[in-house]
Design a protein around this nucleic acid. Sequence first.
DNA 1: TTTATATTTCAATAATTATACAATTATTAT
DNA 2: ATAATAATTGTATAATTATTGAAATATAAA
Lengths: 129, 129
Amino acid sequence: MEEMARAKTPDSGWTVTALAALAHEHRLAAYRLLVEAGPAGIAAGEIAERLGLVASSLTFHIQALLRAGLVTQRRTGRHVIYAADFTAMNGLVGFLAANCCGQDVCVPVCDPARPSKPQAALKAKRRSA
Amino acid sequence: MEEMARAKTPDSGWTVTALAALAHEHRLAAYRLLVEAGPAGIAAGEIAERLGLVASSLTFHIQALLRAGLVTQRRTGRHVIYAADFTAMNGLVGFLAANCCGQDVCVPVCDPARPSKPQAALKAKRRSA
DNA sequence: TTTATATTTCAATAATTATACAATTATTAT
DNA sequence: ATAATAATTGTATAATTATTGAAATATAAA
């Protein structure tokens, strides 16, 4: 029991933090790269390079995502890898949907158990078909 | 033709604007009041009072929601009434859902044609049952 | 027309957020 | 141990956002 990621409705305090974390050009772009990359994630340096940011700026921005729980962090050698946390995005979308038209209309659920082929994988598949 | 609210996918520029509009304690609270109130909306002064804000602060915050298209504005006598625009919230939730797990998994749709009994009405009904 | 009410605009200030560069820490390779 | 690479932290500065009170605008009532 109690092994699933908690489905508890996020509170408005966290929601504000998460919205603010995404409410910036660079951070939204970084998050989208990480969604594309899936569980493998992307090293800090590569995110910075792809977005055209100096290293310290990338750190500044990605820490906002990290504090909001929208991304995870792990070290591999001298690289620090970031990856999207789909559970948190689920919570955010769920909160907004519940506050959009009411409880019983919008129930979008993004299953974090199968995020291994997000957009990038789908695109590749489409291309090779 | 061309009378339906456009279902065009929002771009990331607008998305950042909309996220930023909601990413503040007072503005998220104001938006939630307006969702509860439904199409009838709430006058600026009453929103300010309910949130404990001075009038000019309320104006400052609600204009962020207005610029993002998340709320509409109309005048009735000397009151200015604000109301939630569900179409915009749909676009935002749709954008996030599409960037959560990929195009074909999360498709939450909040039908703006029937927002006449949002949470407040539902709660009242439940209470009287 | 004068007065009262509702809201917005303006101006000053405080607070927060963003950016860049230098310095530091952590890891790996020589 | 020294040097090289990857990332973060610290410091300074710029830019943006938030807050308040006073003044201006719009509408309605006396």
